[in-house]
């Protein structure tokens, strides 16, 4: 089987997932305890107003019909109206999305080089002091709550020392980098240790692989074996983890966006939850899920390109 059919089959597998995602986001609204219309309109709404809104939302129709029109609307880009901002949800998403994407990319740019460096140093010194030190750092990194670190950083580096702005997104690329530096660093301090642990484990596992012994028997130098064989074979498992982590990161960005008042999707999400802006919650959940599926797909295709075994 060649790579084209692999990608084709992989795309086909996504269809049921997309249907499932639409079902989940559709039924999310159904989980609201009580009548959403009454919650939105408040206890003093008249029966007529309630009935009018029910009709406007289509709640008087059978559930399958509601679902079908939901899917139809979604496919045409209509994610409903924000109850709070009185604008289409899609407009809100498009307005807030770039900031979160910038933040995620920023975090990856900071984390990945550090991860690879630390993991390689640790793996090549397995059991010796550099490895132990990196292990301690990575364990600590996993236990430190990002929002706590964020609060401390914002006040110390932001307010007290005044090195970085502590809220907003700024204007222009350089200003973005400046504004988002602290959020990106606090997130990286959590992400890099997680990735390091996994890459280190993969590297060490590959170091003990049989083909490494075979390469040594052929007289190939250690440095070459590490670069050409061990590193390549360790990339695959780490790549998969990275896909999971990016999805996690999109979710994790919520907290930093709140701490540093970055007007991104996460801040929008929390605002909507606190303000009971149900259609924004629903739309955002859908957008997040589609983004995750796209990332997973990209990673799978990338993996298939590297690994000759997956496209069999």
């Amino acid at each position: 089987m060649n790579s084209i059919t692999f990608i084709g089959r992989r795309l086909l597998q996504i269809v049921p997932v997309l249907i499932g995602i639409s079902l989940v986001s559709f039924f999310l609204i159904m989980m609201i305890p009580g009548d959403p219309v009454r919650i939105v309109l408040g206890p003093r709404a008249t029966e007529a107003a309630v009935a009018a809104m029910r009709q406007e939302w289509g709640l008087d129709r059978p559930i399958w019909a509601q679902y079908l029109s939901y899917v139809g609307n979604t496919l045409t880009g209509d994610l409903g109206q924000s109850l709070k901002f009185r604008v289409p949800v899609l407009d809100l998403v498009l307005q807030y999305l770039p900031r979160t994407m910038f933040l995620v990319a920023y975090v990856l740019v900071l984390s990945l080089p550090a991860t690879i460096l630390m993991a390689v140093i640790a793996a090549r010194n397995e059991g010796r002091w550099p490895d132990q030190l990196i292990r301690v750092i990575s364990i600590l990194g996993m236990t430190i709550p990002v929002f706590w670190l964020g609060v401390l950083f914002a006040r110390y580096f932001g307010v007290k020392l005044g090195w970085f702005p502590v809220s907003g997104y700024g204007e222009g690329f350089v200003d973005h980098l400046h504004h988002l530096f602290l959020p990106a660093v606090s997130t990286s301090l959590w992400l890099a240790p997680l990735l390091t642990r996994n890459l280190r484990a993969a590297l060490i596992e590959q170091t003990e692989a049989d083909y490494v012994a075979a390469s040594r028997a052929k007289g190939l130098p250690e440095g070459y074996i590490f670069r050409r064989h061990i590193l390549r074979n360790s990339v695959l498992p780490t790549l998969n983890l990275l896909g999971v982590m990016i999805a996690f990161l999109i979710g994790g960005s919520v907290v930093v966006e709140i701490v540093y008042a970055v007007p991104g999707l996460g801040a929008l999400m929390v605002g909507s939850v606190l303000g009971r802006d149900y259609f924004v919650i629903q739309g955002l959940t859908l957008v997040y899920a589609i983004a995750t599926v796209a990332i997973t797909l990209a990673i799978d295709i990338f993996t298939a390109a590297i690994d000759p075994r997956t496209s069999e």
């Binding site: 083909y211 028997a217 052929k218 390549r232 000759p308």
Partner: peptide, 21 residues
């Protein structure tokens, strides 16, 4: 001497070849 004077082959050929080469 590895490779140039003395070389070695192993029991399980599958695991002694790098799958990505």
């Amino acid at each position: 001497v590895r490779g140039r004077e003395i070389s070695m082959i192993f029991q399980n050929p599958a695991s002694h070849l790098d799958p990505l080469m």
